[in-house]
């Protein structure tokens, strides 16, 4: 069943609500629901704000064009997705959830003045070796036509809904944390110098003021030593650096591994399958931490033929 939202939800108040919930949960153990809500949240008439797009593109190192960048669509629809995650009947805690993966089909260029209808829901609640994972699915329509669809996979660490014991969790987490030698590309093609304010700067353009990204203190409250970069900031920069020009439909996936603690120096290897941007066919990207030699994320981008993936 669709629940139609009248206005775009305010991310900050959703986070504040979630913070209050987690504080209360700390006091008394709440019975978690074991199934996902089936409702879809829908918001109509969403419109990109040109000055926000400008700020977003400036942060990505690109010029603002006539179309909405793929990463900005995510920003636009994100509050609707979060409104699903912050429902009382959603079984996992919103704050502290870790972004594992994203898959986005950008089916056709979206003009800045197109009114968009967004539908978001959750599905695929499955156990993960260190908790539970869930998919958030977002479909974006312009009129009857689907123009963008995204699937984000999140992990709630330490939340086991299927009855695994705490001991299992401990071993799973320990195994996960052991820094096995990872196979990394021999040579980078780019280097990102991410300042301590990277999270605040992305929050300013995205409205996503999740405290885990903002400051040392607020990140510590959520169990991180230092603030971490937004996954979608990294992913959007990857798309800006290795993606096609803004009029090319494409599909892209990103898998997040070790979080990028801020400030940080990140090396990237981007293999772009193109002799020039006009013949862009796709790209494979790996980003890693040169000091600890651990993968931060990997991504794959590929061109979509005109009617691929359309409903």
């Amino acid at each position: 069943m669709d629940r139609v939202l009248a206005d775009p939800p305010e991310l900050t108040s959703l986070y504040a609500g979630a913070l209050a919930v987690s504080a209360r949960a700390g006091l008394r153990r709440r019975q978690r629901p074991s199934a996902l809500p089936l409702d879809r949240h829908r918001l109509d008439g969403l419109l990109a704000a040109p000055d926000e797009v400008e700020g977003f593109q400036r942060l990505m190192g690109r010029a603002r064009g006539d179309f909405v960048p793929s990463g900005y669509v995510h920003i636009l629809v994100f509050p609707v997705a979060v409104s699903v995650l912050s429902r009382p009947d959603f079984p996992l805690p919103l704050l502290g959830m870790i972004h594992l993966r994203n898959e986005i089909h950008h089916l056709r260029p979206i003009r800045l003045d197109e009114r968009l209808a967004v539908t978001a829901w959750v599905e695929n609640l499955t156990p993960h070796r260190s908790g539970s994972q869930v998919d958030v699915v977002v479909h974006v329509h312009s009129g009857p036509e689907m123009v963008w669809m995204g699937r984000s996979t999140y992990l709630a660490k330490g939340i086991h809904l299927t009855g695994t014991s705490d001991a299992d969790v401990a071993t799973a987490v320990a195994a996960d944390a052991s820094p096995a030698a990872e196979e990394l590309p021999g040579c980078p093609t780019a280097e990102w110098s991410l300042g301590g304010d990277t999270g605040r700067r992305y929050a300013a353009v995205s409205g996503d003021y999740n405290p885990i990204h903002l400051s040392v203190l607020s990140a510590r409250a959520l169990g991180m030593k230092r603030p971490i970069a937004h996954g979608m900031y990294l992913a959007s920069r990857m798309v800006a650096a290795a993606g096609p020009d803004e009029s090319t439909p494409f599909k892209w996936t990103v898998e997040f591994r070790a979080p990028v603690l801020l400030p940080s120096r990140v090396l990237l290897s981007a293999e772009v399958d193109a002799s020039s941007t006009a013949q862009w066919r796709g790209a494979e990207v790996v980003a890693w931490d040169p000091r600890r030699r651990r993968t931060h994320f990997s991504g794959r981008l590929e061109r979509l033929t005109v009617d691929a993936g359309a409903k």
């Binding site: 021999g186 040579c187 980078p188 093609t189 780019a190 280097e191 990102w192 110098s193």
Partner: peptide, 20 residues
């Protein structure tokens, strides 16, 4: 001396070529 499009300094770029 970092290249605007890669963020890598000229020395780091040459180090890649040197290794290659």
């Amino acid at each position: 001396t970092a290249e605007p499009r890669t963020g890598l300094s000229m020395g780091e770029h040459q180090a890649i070529t040197t290794a290659r």
